[in-house]
Write a protein that binds this DNA or RNA. Structure first.
Lengths: 209, 209, 209, 209
DNA sequence: GATGAATGAGGATTCATTCAT
DNA sequence: CATGAATGAATCCTCATTCAT
């Protein structure tokens, strides 16, 4: 269980330094995407980044720090997408939920392997302040969205919807699915069902129970 | 791309050998539960099992084979629980689904850390015949259950419900939740919503959208 | 550097025991032939011989003892072949030499891989009495043969001819040669040249130096 | 059937690195000379070289790569010696052959144990391009030398002479012989005999068959 | 600041050999 | 006597990290 510092060792001030950091992150992301965590070795990252191993350690105190930074970046993007989805459009719960689910899908969609690898690594990572804050904010957005409607426990619902979405999307992506509209529709159906906002209107045949 | 043999090296014939194998599996499960995959070293497993490293390799050709065996055991239990849930009780889709969801919860509930670790490891494991068969059978049970009712694509629904359940349960367990009845109710709500079998009856207030 | 006993642990008296020993030797020879020394593990030998590892150690105190026994067997056969070659036919040096060379070729010819492996292993083996004796006898035969003719140092010549033959044959076999008559002719030419018994008679064109 | 890369992992750029590599090769040669291939363990080599095991693996990807490098060095020297022997002096076949045989003797003479160990190891080694090239060139020199004279199959003769020389020298060295002039004379006699260039002139008494 | 050589603890796996049953 | 389960020293090799230049 590591307890070492997990944030970048020093914030790059000069342009060259910023480029170095970017190269390292890019290299790490590439390796993570194509080879998984097991392939992520500091020496390989440095090599792919075209940087000496010494320089890598100039900016990242440990290997975990690299992973943590990539994870933060991913979460930042996710938060940003969710924020846009929550604000834009009408405040109709159904359509807002749908937009947010689409945003979550997009999150796993751009670089599925990378997202998978980072999330798997998350449990080994000591959580820094920013990561915690991001998680809280993401959760807060869902909660806020759901709070505009009468729900007994909006934060519980937020938690469950995030989990449900994450579970379905992850598995679908893993299974090679690529029809995002179809996937979004299915996830939405489950989510609205959870919220007791059932719909018989979708392109779904009638049922005889 | 894994390719090595993954089944146990030889089947223990004598009682002593069976005890050895059991001790190894138990030790591995314990380590996996408390330290995760990274803590699972063959030497540690052997030590905890009170067995020499040589004995471990008599029965498991590689470290992965141990993981594979534990995974098989987990799936066997899961399959068994699902079968019971599918058969027992009326063929009412709602109650059958509820029972199956409860069975799935139980699957993650007895040893959550172990299940998490094993599932995370699964993608690195070369799947043997039995593992494949178990996966197929588990999937088939869901499909069969859903097929008794008019659904456009039962196998798709089976896939989605399993993913949805898995996602919600995993996260809840991870977050420290222990009220399984409550969890089961929430998952079921999402599942029935997905299946267009909405309910206003649960201990849930009515909503005005 | 082993100094342990190298002769069989006990001489098999009963028929069953003799069969066991034979099976072990056969298995070891097979493995040596097809996989080389590195493939020769005691457990594998026992398995191939259809014998328990415990039984193997009943008859051979160490792995080296098995190799030593195979080597002795090989040398016994070589000695026997050489004896026949030395005795049979006229005592004409040229033809005797030819016959003995043919015998040596045969020695490497029946199971080239085995012979190679055993000879390579020889240097690691503590020499037992019988092996020493066999070597002496083989050398003595060459010496005796050459002694019937006026040579300054028959034992030196014996040594050299054996080495020359061994070197040429080994390499030729290794290179995949299979025309033994041709090989024998070439070796003989070198041998007779060494003995100053030159021949312009072979199917060899005339030379202009 | 070997297939792994066998050339050094990276070429040392700094002086310190070059010293490390040299130390490793020296240590390996020493161990090989005094203990044989079985004594050659990577940890021992590193220890004797006064270098960490990690450093060893910076420059040699596998243990075999070390052997391969030593073998290459040996062959390079052999080739060089042969080239000098072939060029210098008159083009008289007899004296050229003698010089080349002396060169070959020198090859086994400087570090007999090392040469023996390396040659024994050769069959287990995946041959890289340079090794192949060296072998070809060595063989070509013999062939070229013999081609200047009317011989039915110069490349066959080259092969045989190399084998004959190798066999006699190896055995003589092994037997503790140190009088190289005498050895060279005997080998030459066999070689010239093979080539049908017999001599009664050496310090050898006349024979009556 | 940058470089890359060096480090060495740690981890997977093998195999000759012993010994209780 | 036979069996085969158990042993553990020994071996190859990796990779995060440090530090002299």
């Amino acid at each position: 269980m590591p307890s070492a510092p997990i944030s970048p060792r020093k914030t790059p001030r000069q342009a060259r330094a910023r480029a170095t950091v970017a190269a390292i992150e890019e290299a790490a992301a590439h390796i993570l995407t194509h080879g998984g965590v097991d392939a992520l070795t500091t020496n390989l990252v440095a090599a792919r980044a075209g940087v000496s191993i010494g320089s890598l350690y100039q900016y990242f105190p440990t290997k975990e720090a690299i992973l943590a930074e990539l994870l933060r970046k991913l979460r930042r993007e996710h938060l940003h997408d969710l924020e846009r989805a929550a604000q834009q459009g009408g405040d109709d719960l159904r359509s807002t939920t749908t937009r947010m689910i689409r945003a979550s899908i997009a999150h796993h969609t751009e670089a599925p392997e990378l997202a998978r690898a980072l999330e798997a690594a998350e449990s080994h990572l000591p959580l820094d302040a920013e990561s915690e804050a991001l998680k809280t904010q993401i959760s807060a957005i869902w909660t806020a969205t759901l709070s505009t409607h009468a729900l007994p426990d909006p934060s519980q619902a937020a938690f469950d919807l995030a989990a449900l979405t994450h579970g379905m999307v992850t598995r679908a992506v893993q299974a090679g699915e690529r029809d995002w509209d179809n996937l979004a529709a299915r996830v939405t159906r489950a989510a609205l069902g959870y919220l007791h906002l059932c719909t018989q209107d979708d392109h779904q045949p009638t049922q005889q129970p």
